[in-house]
Amino acid sequence: MHFWKKGLVILVGSIFIALGINLFLIPYKVLDGGIIGIALILNYLWGLKPGLMIICFSIPVFMIAWFNYREYFYNSLHGMIISSFLIDLLQPLVGFIHIQSIYSSILGGTFVGVGIGLMLRFKTSTGGTDLVAQLLSDKTGINVGILIFIIDSIVVLSGGLLLSTDTLLLSIITIFFVGVTTSLITKNVRAF
């Protein structure tokens, strides 16, 4: 039964992440942070598929996890693959919803935060910098949502410099809502 419950959480969390990205972030060239943000930067600049780029950039993180934190590797691999697949599968939804960019940033950040938070709450994740943040959280005791926020800020600042001031400002709003939502969902929970 535990296997099915974790599988359902990975699927639901991945759907939230994919919808957040495709419905709310991509239409306004808004970034999330971490590996998703890096994948979105590559999508905006060169049209590369974000889900595929997430998988490519996650390889080094998963190699570290394989050698040092085998449990993290197993608990995150499925989340990364399923969420990446769904991000690319649901890409035709881009532009389906038309709302003001600030509300799109808030909703995108909230959706992504719910997806990440659900997975972390049930001892799985999408890997990537979420996995790095979880590893750092275990070592430092700092809330994983705060660490995700810090890592995401670095990616968003870099992406904002490459893309536009609007992208930077909207992305800051997005990562704020990703961090807050993830923190609220994972509060008082040790994910791994």
Rank of each mutant, 00 (worst) to 15 (best):
L120G: 07
G79E: 01
F67A: 12
F67I: 14
N68F: 15
Y103G: 10
M63I: 15
I82W: 00
S76L: 11
W66L: 15
F57K: 09
P92W: 03
V112K: 00
R121K: 15
T124H: 10
I81L: 15
L93C: 05
S125C: 11
Q100T: 12
G113E: 08
H78T: 15
F96W: 10
T124M: 13
V61P: 01
Y72P: 06
S76C: 12
P60I: 09
P60W: 07
I106Y: 01
A65D: 02
F73M: 11
L89V: 09
Y103R: 07
V112D: 00
I55W: 06
G108Y: 05
T124I: 11
I99W: 00
I87H: 00
I97M: 05
G115L: 07
L90P: 02
G115F: 08
F122L: 10
M119Y: 06
I106F: 08
I106L: 10
I116S: 05
M119I: 09
G79W: 00
L90A: 00
G79D: 05
K123L: 10
Y72H: 14
M63R: 06
S76A: 13
G109H: 03
V61C: 04
I99D: 00
F85G: 04
P92Y: 04
S125M: 11
N68E: 11
L86N: 01
I102L: 13
L93E: 03
G115Q: 01
G115I: 07
I64R: 13
I106N: 02
I81V: 15
M80F: 06
F67T: 07
F62Y: 11
G117R: 04
I97W: 02
P60R: 02
Y72M: 14
I64T: 13
Y74A: 09
C56E: 09
L107R: 05
S58W: 03
N75Y: 10
K123V: 09
V94H: 00
T110A: 15
T124W: 09
L86F: 00
S105W: 04
G95N: 06
L77A: 12
I97Q: 01
S104H: 03
L107W: 05
G115C: 07
S101Y: 11
Q100V: 11
P60K: 04
N68R: 14
M63S: 09
F73P: 03
I81Y: 08
V94M: 01
L90N: 01
Y72A: 12
I87Y: 01
Y74P: 01
G109Q: 03
S105P: 00
K123M: 13
R70Q: 14
G79N: 05
I97C: 02
S58P: 07
I99R: 02
L89G: 08
M119H: 12
L77R: 07
G115V: 07
I55C: 04
